[in-house]
Amino acid sequence: MSVIEMTTFTVAPENTQAMLDARPGMVAAFRADRRGFRSARLVRVDEHTWLDFVEWTDDAAWDESKAKGANLPAIAAFFGTIGGLVGAERGVRYDDAEDGPRRVRTIAYGPEPSQVGELYLPEGTGPFPVVTLVHGGYWTALWDRRQLTGVADDLVARGYAVWNVEYRRIGEPGGGWPGTFLDVAAAVDALDGMDPALDTSRVVLLGHSAGGHLAAWAAHRGVLPPAAPGAGPKVTPVGLVTLAGALDLEAADAAGFGAVLADPAAEPPKDAPEPTRPELWGPIAGTAGAGVVPLLLGGHDPERRGWASPFELADAGVPVLAVHGTADEAVPADWSRRYAEKAGEGRYVEVDGGTHFDVVRPAHPVWPAVAEWIGLRTGRAGAR
């Protein structure tokens, strides 16, 4: 058995990044200085509140650590970011089996609740090629990255590391322009130095629907002017996969793309997941009547649209696979076809009778072609 220390504390939002930055140093100092320290796991409860699970081998180790307090600079730096203590409890762990390899873990790339992702690692030691996933949902906070967990599981089984990212979206603070774009850029760049098991010279970006747009934009960041959000990427992908991508912002704006969200009672696309944050329906419905592109870009500024549109950036030397179903109820297949034609190394796969969500189902007949293309781009052709 071992002792679990459960401490709940508050951190002011303006101190969150400093706390996260100080965390690795604090944990390293505990490992070096505190007898009996086994692990520490941080849980975000809400915007201000955090829960720290710290495991010790025995009561004496826990008592000794409390007596030492902030005896080292790295520990003091972490404690200095905390606003106040909510409560502290002690418990005893009974399931004393050692933890196995951590094949999935949540990693923050910024201080906001949506600036996180799940990193999946396959069996083995790596370094592994990486597929970064960007989910859709009309760029809104109604849906989240859980839409793509099935895709993540399939790719991990094929030997890829997978980085399934979240980002600030319409309906939450910081979503839209430029926060959504800055977050996707930061999430991709966070791969640099994230884990030695990752081969960041073999990164493929894959996005679905609105996430297809964001993945395409992120793939072409290298041609953005210095003033544009997301310019100067640290990670350059070897390929891009867009699945039912909302790729033509000009056409989407003209068509009022996403105006359907103004009617929460509207029939959703076949197999669409339930909203993960249904409480946002009302606020988003009240602003989406003219479509969501103006909400994403903060208006109709042509410079912003030029910086944000994959159509303006498409001929940027990144190989592209664009997959779209002919029966897609949400996004016109023509947007993917025209984008693939414009891309320098573009391939378009049309799925006869395919719906909006068919293209993200690993059980669908089109998926092996997607996996094969990713394998060719990363040197894992034929892997399963």
Rank of each mutant, 00 (worst) to 15 (best):
G375M: 08
W335Q: 15
A246R: 09
V54R: 11
S65W: 15
L240R: 09
S209H: 08
Y339F: 10
A77D: 14
D334Q: 13
A316C: 12
E166L: 04
T8Q: 13
V366P: 08
A383E: 14
H364R: 09
E345N: 13
G382T: 02
G353M: 03
T355N: 12
G176W: 07
D58R: 00
V370A: 02
A343V: 00
W177C: 02
D52V: 10
E250H: 14
R305P: 07
A215Y: 05
P229E: 03
V86G: 08
P229A: 00
R35H: 14
R304M: 03
F357Q: 09
P310L: 01
T287P: 10
L295V: 05
G137S: 05
L72I: 10
E350W: 07
R103Q: 14
H324S: 11
R377A: 03
H324T: 11
V293R: 10
G124P: 06
L142P: 14
A333W: 13
G291P: 07
W139N: 08
A32R: 15
D33Q: 14
T10W: 06
H135T: 05
V238G: 13
V331C: 07
E47C: 01
D144K: 11
A265D: 15
V11W: 04
D253G: 09
A262K: 09
F53M: 00
R38L: 15
L243N: 03
A29C: 09
N71T: 09
G222S: 14
G36A: 05
G175Q: 09
A265G: 15
T7A: 13
E55D: 15
R158Q: 04
V104I: 14
A186M: 00
P332T: 01
V323E: 11
